[in-house]
Simulated assay, not measured.
Amino acid sequence: MLAIVCPGQGAQKPGFLSPWRELPGVAEALASLSEPAGIDLLRHGTESDADTIRDTAVAQPLLVASGIIAASALYQGEGLPSADAFAGHSVGELTAAALAGVLSNEDAMRLVAVRSQAMAKAAAAEPTSMAAVVGGVREDVVATIERHGLRAANINSAAQVVAAGTTAQIAALAQDGPARARVIPLQVAGAFHTPHMAGAREELAAFAPRLRPHDPTVPLISNASGEVISSGARYLELIVDQVAAPVDWEACMATLRDRGVTAMIEVAPAGTLTGLAKRELKGIALANLNTPDDLDAARTLVREHAGAAAAHTAQEN
């Protein structure tokens, strides 16, 4: 069983789309995606500096577009079997929805444009931030986060929880963190996936009815407790709530484990989610699709692992 996963904000690096622009049609595809995104994706993905692409309103559309481009190149003219599941971390769930057929590429870019701008606006209303808490005992970690008035915004793995709240609360956590744990402040300008994003949630809720979602053609796993989404309507409901609710990537990995995943490909800019899988889903085959040089290895993984779940179902029937 093959899962294709899509990274979230923070994975982007200056120039990371430069290798992809050398492929035929990629510059044109990025230009097409730029229109609904409202930004110049090719310029930001090849020329803009780290500070520019750290901006939420730039980073999120850039990440969704890069995942669409990388996955398209993976399957371009190859006749490969589809993946058996898609999942994405935070904004990566919009990428995964496009790859799973829930949203058209255009609608995915329209949605991420509204999402990113709304989240940037909400973040600007009050100085807020996030910090990764690595190690420690989960109960102690969560209790300490809550004692400082913070929220557990991302449950990334058994050993990593991301806290979010005001900058003062994050500073207090760094000074008085959980036992046997490291607190690592993150370079983000917002307490994403917490009630601080309530205004962004309202904007998304107002925009969502303009979209035309479809039921997934391949299982799509939600950040909300690892739920396997069965309808486009349910996807929109969950993705609207997601901006102000925790991302439970640990639950997503548990769902993949329960479904029998044997391989995982992370689309560009890759490495974060396969890194977590290396520790949490031991023994599965992993591939990072960061540049066109990675395509052959990724295609080999698709040929060896994709379609296993469908074949198993057919045998049972």
Rank of each mutant, 00 (worst) to 15 (best):
V102F: 07
R212F: 07
A174C: 11
A254C: 12
G45Q: 03
S225W: 02
L211R: 05
V133A: 05
G149P: 04
I184W: 07
T144M: 14
I39C: 14
E250Q: 15
V112Q: 06
M130I: 09
A100E: 04
D51Q: 14
L23D: 08
A97E: 10
D296R: 10
P195A: 03
Q187I: 11
M109L: 15
Q315C: 09
K278F: 05
N154A: 07
A285E: 14
L289T: 06
Q187H: 11
P209W: 12
L273D: 01
K278C: 08
T217Y: 00
D140T: 08
S72E: 14
T272K: 06
H89C: 14
V162Q: 03
A233D: 12
G177L: 12
A37L: 03
S104P: 01
D55T: 12
S225A: 14
M253Y: 02
V26T: 10
Q169Y: 03
I184P: 00
L238G: 08
P81M: 12
E126G: 06
R147V: 04
E237H: 10
G165A: 06
S18E: 13
Q76Y: 06
P213I: 07
A152Y: 02
G149A: 09
Q160E: 05
R201Q: 15
A270S: 15
S157R: 08
A29L: 15
E126S: 14
I265Y: 09
G38R: 13
I4G: 02
L186V: 14
A172M: 09
S129F: 03
E203W: 05
T128W: 00
I53A: 10
A171T: 11
A122C: 10
A198G: 05
I170D: 09
V142W: 00
T194R: 05
G45A: 06
E93K: 10
D107A: 03
D40E: 15
A297V: 09
D215E: 05
E126P: 04
G165V: 09
A123F: 05
A277Q: 05
A132C: 12
V243M: 09
P195F: 03
D51W: 11
A70G: 13
V64K: 10
A171F: 03
P127R: 04
S66A: 15
T262L: 12
S34L: 09
N223M: 01
A113F: 03
V142G: 01
R234S: 03
P81H: 12
E316P: 00
G275E: 11
A124W: 08
L281N: 01
L276T: 03
V240Q: 01
I155H: 15
A31Y: 04
A71D: 11
D296T: 15
A37E: 02
A124D: 11
V134N: 01
P209D: 05
V112G: 02
F16G: 01
A206I: 07
V162C: 14
G101Y: 05
L301N: 07
A263C: 07
V112P: 08
D51E: 15
A309R: 02
D293R: 13
L186G: 11
L238P: 02
L30K: 05
H305I: 08
N223T: 04
L99C: 07
V188P: 13
A98K: 04
A85Y: 12
L41M: 09
V112D: 01
V133R: 00
